[in-house]
Design a protein around this nucleic acid. Structure first.
Length: 518
RNA sequence: GGUCCCUUCGUCUAGCCUGGUCCAGGACGCCAGGUUUUCAUCCUGGAAACACGGGUUCAAAUCCCGUAGGGAUCACCA
């Protein structure tokens, strides 16, 4: 048994946003390092693999750092996320942690291979000779073998002087003393190349742990293209031929000639369409809690071996093991994630929920800013929605009737519930509401609890079902039969607006009421 | 197509290594009932799977072989 400290790494390429598949890989690598904690020398490295000069961007790098931090997957070595320029400020003694800053290092090893006769020039690029059978062990997939006859020489340095992924990953993992390579299974076949390079360079082979892929419900690989796909279909269904700019390019988009995100977003905006969440940032914007996302992600391909499904990171760190990682691909089930998120939200302490919801609303639904700043009302709003929200964002929709102007409440007579509770049976609901409004008006001081009790006693006295008052009242206030708990609803609404909305509701059905009176 | 890998309820999975305790357990979703003045929550119950075909064995979800289906890779992308 080797006593060297456990070192894992997550090595994204900054060619786009961090997506959930990457997040899961990072989570497992992080968890394994943390399991071997500081006392055991466990370390988690974040390395940026920006050897693709064309597609890498600083924006992507920053996005990845931000998303990793949001998830709470902190790293011991890598770009310093607190610094203004993470390319300059880096943590750890094996840096730099951007491959684009390590060019001389790779050159040295490439030269070493050339001198040893193991690599050769080919049109300006350098290729490594694959001559031997390769066998290696993977902690998930077991013993993997490749015959030399099936292997081809491959490029280790591009004509532009940059190393290829294969060269850079091998050199960096060795120099950064990475002991466990945890990555997506798309690299399982590539590992033959890496093992050959490692042996040729005289490095020590790390432990390999390949993770199966995360797929869409239809079995296709989950990717950012899915957004374009959904937007394109919606645009076709709606016969949308322009989004107001770059018409020719948009036509190409519709024709599947490109997957430009700007068009996907524009279509979503115009058609009021929800694009599928793919990236970590998408889930954050949709109001998911990191703990819930991580918990769900951990369960995609790993499980603790008993029937426990909902757990926190401490539990994951304590229980995580490679031999409980599954081999088959798994489909991403948003319904289950949503359920986990709802449970996570419900279990948050009220201050945390209030803070998270407030931040989310202000950031994504600024029309809620006044509400959020009204501490008393907002704390009641939180009480009302914490037990019923599946996501933070959902609250913005459900609670909208609280913040709109009284004149904006719509009484839609085509809605069956509205007719049933207000108009049917000779406007029974409206008449009850009109009568009850007089009682409500007398209530002072106004509290939701008292107003609620008033409904109760009023109905009891008349031996009527509470719904006879409560439902028309809900509609008068919100335009809909669905609201949170009546007492809280009335508290948040306040006496003045409650009464104004009742009057407005009665007014808007005046002709119907008069028809009955005659 | 070559190579490598995978295959249990609709989905995520437990069980498989160390065959019998599995007419296959849990979770999400779904259906039904209950609680709730509404919706959501919550509670109770239900339908729902060992890809297929051969072996081995007294006995196979579990071991072996084949077939089918799926994924990855075969880039001077990672």
């Amino acid at each position: 048994m080797s006593t060297q400290p456990i070192v894992t790494r997550f090595a994204p390429s900054p060619t786009g946003a961090l997506h959930v598949g990457g997040a899961r890989t990072a989570l497992f690598a992080w968890a394994y390092a943390r399991q071997h904690g500081a006392s055991g020398g466990g370390k988690f490295i974040l390395r940026i693999e920006d050897t693709d000069q064309k597609r890498s961007s600083p924006e992507s790098t920053k996005g990845i750092l931000r998303d990793m931090q949001w998830l709470g997957l902190n790293w011991d070595e890598g770009p310093n996320p607190a610094a203004d320029d993470p390319y300059e400020a880096q943590l750890g003694e094996h840096g730099p942690y951007f491959q684009s800053q390590r060019l001389e290092i790779y050159t040295k090893y490439v030269d070493q291979l050339i001198e040893a006769g193991l690599a050769y020039e080919d049109d300006g690029a350098i290729r490594f000779k694959m001559e031997k059978d390769i066998a290696f062990k993977d902690e998930v997939f077991g013993e993997i073998k490749f015959a030399a006859s099936d292997l081809e020489d491959f490029v280790i340095r591009k004509a532009d002087g940059f190393p290829t992924y294969h060269m850079a990953v091998v050199v960096d993992d060795a120099l950064m003393k990475v002991t466990h390579v945890i990555r997506d299974q798309e690299h399982l076949s590539n590992t033959s190349k890496h093992v050959a390079l490692i042996d040729a360079l005289g490095f020590e082979r790390p432990v390999y742990v390949h993770l199966s892929s995360i797929m869409n419900p239809d079995g296709s690989k989950m990717s950012k293209r899915d957004k374009a796909k959904v937007a394109r279909q919606a645009a076709k269904d709606a016969k949308l031929t322009s989004v107001g700019f770059d018409d020719a390019e948009f036509a190409a988009f519709l024709d599947k000639k490109n997957d430009e995100m700007k068009f996907a977003l524009a279509v979503a905006e115009q058609l009021n369409l929800d694009l599928p969440e793919i990236n970590v940032a998408d889930f954050r914007d949709s109001g998911y809690i990191p703990a819930a996302l991580l918990n769900y992600l951990a369960l995609l391909g790993w499980n603790p071996g008993d029937d426990i499904e909902q757990f926190d990171l401490d539990f994951l760190v304590a229980k995580f093991s490679f031999n409980r990682i599954g081999k088959s691909n798994s489909k991403f089930d948003r319904a289950k994630l949503k359920s986990f998120n709802a449970d996570t939200i419900a279990k948050l302490d009220t201050e945390t929920f209030s803070m998270l919801l407030g931040q989310h609303l202000v950031a994504h639904h600024p029309e809620y800013t006044d509400m959020v700043n009204d501490r008393q009302r907002f704390s009641m709003l939180c009480m009302a929605y914490q037990p019923r929200a599946h996501t933070l964002d959902e609250v913005a929709d459900m609670a909208r009737f609280f913040i709109i102007d009284n004149s904006e409440v719509v009484y839609d007579t085509s809605n069956k519930q509205v007719r049933k509770n207000l108009i049917n049976s000779d406007c029974a609901g409206l008449r009850a509401l009109a009568e009850f409004a007089g009682e409500l008006e007398k209530l002072a001081p106004w509290t939701g609890e008292d107003a609620h009790n008033l409904i109760k006693s009023y109905c009891e006295e008349r031996e009527m079902n509470m719904g006879k008052i409560a439902q028309p009242l809900r509609i008068a206030i919100s335009g809909n039969v669905v609201t949170p708990d009546m007492a809280l609803t009335l508290d948040i609404m306040g006496k003045k607006d409650t009464l104004l909305r009742i009057m407005r509701c009665l007014d808007s059905f005046r002709s119907e009421m008069e028809a009955v009176a005659e």
